[in-house]
Design a protein around this nucleic acid. Structure first.
Lengths: 211, 211, 211, 211
DNA sequence: AATGAATGAGTTTTCATTCAT
DNA sequence: AATGAATGAAAACTCATTCAT
């Protein structure tokens, strides 16, 4: 259905755009926003500096796209294949959360850049732009909504504490998840270490520390 | 009778140094490392650019001092007035943790810059320097040790779960604490909102989410 | 058919690099290392400041290249077209030295900057860098070797004094040559004045002052 | 004869001024004009920065005084105890020149700073100021006059070559002397090495290189 | 359409000089 | 009279962005 004249060129163009985003994601994740230069990205991709400007208005705009991708990637992980309403017992819920956690773990093992990008967003946000800071807040809020939906469902079903402050707890839980994930990517933990952390997180989540 | 080295001039000098650190802490906390220029700090303090260089080798060195201050400030909060061995029952322990949490809350209300600086450290670390990244790791590890001591004591006393993975849980708990604190300073939460978050955190910590 | 690496752009690039070196040589020769700013060089060449940084790591690195050029230029003059072994009689030797001296005179008339740069090297060396001082020493030593080869040949052929301290005399002679050359470029002597100095130098060299 | 009220204070003041000049001479000689900071001089002398400004208008003015001292010191060596007219035979003249050379050698061994300062003058002159360059020229010319007087006397007495270009030769000889002296102080030659150079210089001077 | 060389605006840093104490 | 902390003007250098080819 696309016009024949632009079809091949257009495909090439979109492919390059995608490659730029991929490469930019890598470099931003490795070095952070400020230490990454446009030249670094172009060089790694093997294109000229200004080819990037043919697709993006500038460094900041490119970072925006990269961050949006990372955000939606993480959102997919949070929401994937498990509806909040799916669990009806605490056991089901535990199983559901474990599946999500496992999905996270696997996804981040395969593509740790997503997490580092999130770190770049959440951490450097204030050091780049007011606008970016706003985007970070929005993302946190959205994630809170998702988690709160799960918690609200569980509370109403009765398998979570009746006095649970759903919104506040959602916020805490997400903070915990992101922190742990960031920590683990930062210190380049082994899979075993990561598993211990994940287990400890889930144990804390489900039962607290009390004997 | 006063030693010549602590004369009026010397006192003035130290005072200016202290003012520079204070102001730098403010600006770094507000804008992050990269967006902060030496000129910003000097201007806010109302001194010339080069006065800062009379006290610090450069921007990076100044940031180091500011970060060290913030780190030891937070460490004091973590360790202050409550020995790990002080609690012998779960009730005592809850009380102890509440006191620490309350201390945190109050301290950060009075001096939110400390937290924002910690954010600057933990978040921008990788975007500044390998050395700074190392400092961030060291801090995280030290905080883990402190928390682990509390948890280990509680487990051996029997008021915390026998199967508690002390080291991993300590890491998670600290991540949770810092994340929440950072989040709260970022979104400039009201005291009430903050209190809700703190309560939710403690509830999660002590009893998990289970009914 | 031309290789992509030596394309038009590449040639332009190399040409600009060469122009930068030329211009830098001029300005360094005129004003010395410290009084010369990158901006002076850029301005005289009519390019932007940062264009220079696209070709050289910094002011010091540019000076290095300029000095190396000057050094090899002078070395060529010292060694050009006359092998140490070429002369077998005192008359031949005199003729040979006169040719070298004449080559020097002509070369320096056409490109006095080379000499001024050598002055910059020999004179400012200690005021810039330990490394540069080392380079100056190495150059002096190399020049001594060249001259000593001539003197040694003449002594063994018997047309120079049997008691000649070859190495020490070589050092003295070079010092004399460079000093005279530097003096002449400094005071912007007329060709006639220079010729008188060259003649006096050669007369002193060949026969001393004695009647 | 001085006024009693200012006598002691005045003496102190002059003494400090003298110490500043001495210390400045040391540091300028060691590091050259540009790498020497006012603070370096003040610190080595153990006085405050601004005490120097109580005696000299600035760094440049202080350097001027230091250089003038060095220049007159070298001039004394050139003219000391030996009148141009004193020698009547070549043997006398040789003896006279040897005495002067020996005086130079001893003086510079005891106070090598004078030579290094001269180097600073002759070498860095162009890199500091037009005025300083002029002073260097004037010094060279004055030294030429002194040497020319000796040579002229010798030629008229008949013990130096009748065709000697007195003025040009004087210039060459001085250049040789200064170069050798500078070289020797730069490479921190041993007394033996220096003696070899001095001998080679005198041999060249008196008899040239011819067999 | 792609290139990459050139740009210039912005930042850190130095140091001779001044000035309050 | 001496101090040394503070200054500000100047210089080197970086890098996102533009533009001629």
């Amino acid at each position: 259905m696309s016009t024949p004249t632009s079809s091949r060129a257009e495909r090439m163009r979109l492919q390059l755009r995608e490659e730029i985003v991929q490469t930019a994601a890598e470099v931003f994740a490795e070095r952070g926003y400020h230490r990454t230069g446009i030249a670094d990205i172009a060089q790694r991709l093997g294109v000229g500096n200004s080819s990037i400007y043919a697709h993006f208005a500038g460094k900041r705009a490119l970072f925006d796209v990269v961050i949006d991708d990372a955000m939606s990637g993480v959102m997919s992980l949070l929401t994937a294949e498990n509806a909040p309403a799916a669990a009806d017992t605490f056991e089901d819920y535990q199983e559901q959360v474990r599946r999500i956690a496992s999905g996270f773990t696997v996804a981040l093992r395969d593509d740790p850049a997503v997490l580092r990008l999130l770190r770049a967003l959440l951490v450097e946000a204030g050091g780049v732009d007011e606008e970016l800071a706003g985007k970070a807040s929005a993302f946190t809020d959205a994630a809170t909504q998702v988690t709160a939906a799960y918690l609200g469902h569980g509370r109403s079903r009765g398998y979570l504490r009746a006095d649970l402050d759903v919104e506040a707890t959602a916020r805490v839980v997400n903070a915990m998840i992101f922190s742990v994930a960031l920590e683990e990517t930062r210190r380049e933990a082994t899979p075993e270490e990561t598993q211990r952390i994940v287990d400890a997180t889930l144990a804390l989540y489900f039962g607290g520390v009390a004997a």
